[in-house]
Simulated scan of single mutants.
Amino acid sequence: MGWVKRHLLVTSFVGLLLSVGLLTALVGYLGVVVYAALVSGGSIVGPLLELALPFLLGVAVLLTTATLSGVGFAVAVLRRLSLPRSERVHAVVDHVEREYSPLSSVVFADFLAPPEPSADERAERALADLKQQYVEGDLTEAEFERKVDRLVATDSVDEARADRERRLVHEREQSR
């Protein structure tokens, strides 16, 4: 499935071009047969009856292929667009995908989800929240300082853990 996802744009575009081109050629061939029958003065019914089953079968296969390729192409193009990522858009698309099961395989909701904040952004938000609580009088000065110290200590622990994991990965890569 990974190969199909990576090459969906190209394969669906080629499938769309081929199926629409062959469908056009098939309909054009039918037009030539009808025109030839009309020009020769013969009956149109005979040649049409001879072509009915293969023509209808070919049209059905090519229309199905064109439709599936068109949907695949549209999905691939939409995935590559620079769409706004927000929690509100993510919630709406997620709801639509859950309500209509055929859309659940498209997975646009995850694509539209806002990116996770980095550790620095989370720490800045937490510090801003603490400052706001202190300004509003919800925290005493001692509580504020204790929570800021705990926040800084947690940040230091997270950074140390991340550094240690980076070093381990680097050592594993060098040992290979």
Rank of each mutant, 00 (worst) to 15 (best):
Ser118Gly: 13
Ser86Pro: 07
Val59Phe: 06
His170Glu: 15
Glu171Phe: 11
Ser118Cys: 06
Arg150Ile: 02
Ser43Tyr: 05
Ser105Glu: 14
Val96Ile: 11
Arg161Glu: 07
Arg98Trp: 08
Ala36Thr: 10
Asp94Gln: 13
Glu121Thr: 07
Glu87Pro: 01
Ala91Tyr: 04
Phe55His: 07
Glu171Met: 11
Arg79Ala: 03
Val107Asn: 00
Ser69Ile: 08
Arg146Ile: 00
Leu78Thr: 02
Pro54Val: 06
Val34Lys: 05
Val148His: 01
Glu136Asp: 12
Phe13Asp: 03
Gly58Pro: 08
Ala109Gly: 00
Asp163Gly: 12
Val4Lys: 10
Ala160Leu: 10
Arg166Leu: 10
Thr24Asp: 08
Val107Ile: 08
Phe73Ala: 07
Arg166Ile: 07
Asp163Gln: 10
Pro114Gln: 05
Arg167Glu: 13
Ala123Gln: 07
Ala119Thr: 06
Arg85Pro: 15
Leu48His: 07
Thr67Glu: 09
Leu48Ala: 07
Ala60Tyr: 14
Leu103Met: 11
Ala76Lys: 04
Leu16Ile: 10
Leu51Cys: 02
Glu87Arg: 12
Leu17Gly: 08
Val93Gln: 01
Ala37Ser: 02
Glu159Ile: 09
Ser105Trp: 15
Leu53His: 10
Leu38Trp: 12
Val107Thr: 04
Val32Asp: 14
Ala109Leu: 07
Leu51Ser: 09
His95Asp: 06
Leu51Gln: 00
Arg150Glu: 06
Thr154Glu: 07
Arg79Gln: 03
Arg172Tyr: 14
Glu99Met: 15
Val27Ala: 11
Phe111Cys: 05
Val148Arg: 05
Ala76Leu: 04
